[in-house]
């Protein structure tokens, strides 16, 4: 017992380092692709307002007010258009991006609209009809989203309007290029073909543009093709976005046995 105590005293720094390192890495590994939880909500609130202030300073010359009016008008027109086409979502909420990262593997963005404006987890985020990401966490006035260029999230997409469905993922290197997986070798496609959302995940309605087939050669892994996709969204100049409110995610989840929403 005394030896153990002496050992602890002698190596207390290393032991404490191991304990704290284990905690830090567990925190990192278990965050499941994007941050969640109470801490995120709290920091989202205060950091969101600070981010918004910074954004205001940097965009003083961008006629922000006029832009927002135009966007709100645009959003309501698009909502009407969607309603006319009998497609979800039923409402579109315009929002300003107050923070966006694109130099990491697990990128994220923060918008200045939250629960009070009808934003909820799982809603799709788009700009000019192009799918950009989805909401991962919300506080009262801000929401945190994961963009398509997040290496830890996959998206269900389709080649063309009626082509085969595959998984779209980002490999963490070039923010203009993603990879489409699980496409059968027999699929007919050519460079420039459009890639649309499949609508299967419920974040986006079916048929939203996400990118185009790139010129470079697809990779064949022995079973399926891996196709490079040139993303349609310009993530570096993502200043304003539209959140697709009233998407089908909740309705889908209520139908799935043992899903989170059905347990509630």
């Amino acid at each position: 017992m005394r030896n153990l105590w002496n050992f602890i005293i002698q190596y207390h720094v290393i032991l404490l380092f191991c304990v704290l390192q284990f905690f830090a890495l567990s925190w990192y590994v278990t965050r499941n692709g994007y941050p969640r939880g109470k801490w995120v909500k709290r920091t989202l609130e205060w950091q969101g307002s600070w981010n918004e202030q910074i954004t205001k300073w940097t965009r003083l010359n961008e006629l922000a007010e006029l832009n927002q009016e135009l966007l709100a008008e645009n959003a309501s027109l698009r909502a009407e258009l969607f309603a006319a086409n009998q497609r979800s979502p039923s409402t579109i909420q315009s929002a300003e991006v107050v923070r966006f990262t694109w130099s990491n593997n697990a990128n994220y963005f923060i918008i200045n609209q939250g629960i009070e404006e009808g934003i909820a987890i799982g809603q799709g985020v788009s700009h000019e009809g192009i799918a950009l990401g989805r909401i991962a966490e919300v506080s009262d006035h801000y929401a945190l989203g994961v963009p398509i260029i997040n290496g830890e999230v996959e998206w269900s997409v389709r080649i063309g309007k009626d082509g085969p469905v595959g998984r779209l993922s980002w490999d963490g290197t070039d923010i203009t290029i993603a990879s489409l997986h699980d496409i059968p070798k027999s699929t007919a496609f050519s460079p420039g073909d459009s890639i649309f959302t499949s609508g299967f995940q419920g974040f986006f309605p079916k048929g939203m543009l996400i990118g185009r087939v790139d010129d470079s050669e697809p990779y064949f892994d022995g079973q399926f093709l891996q196709i490079p996709i040139l993303l349609a969204g310009d993530f570096r100049s993502m200043n304003y976005v539209k959140v697709l409110i009233g998407n089908e995610l909740e309705q889908y989840q209520s139908l799935i046995p043992n899903s989170d929403s059905s347990r509630k």
């Binding site: 905690f23 890495l25 925190w27 990192y28 941050p35 995120v40 697990a106």
Partner: peptide
Amino acid sequence: AAYEGGLFMS
């Protein structure tokens, strides 16, 4: 502050 989940702590 950066939503990095333990990376900077580690």
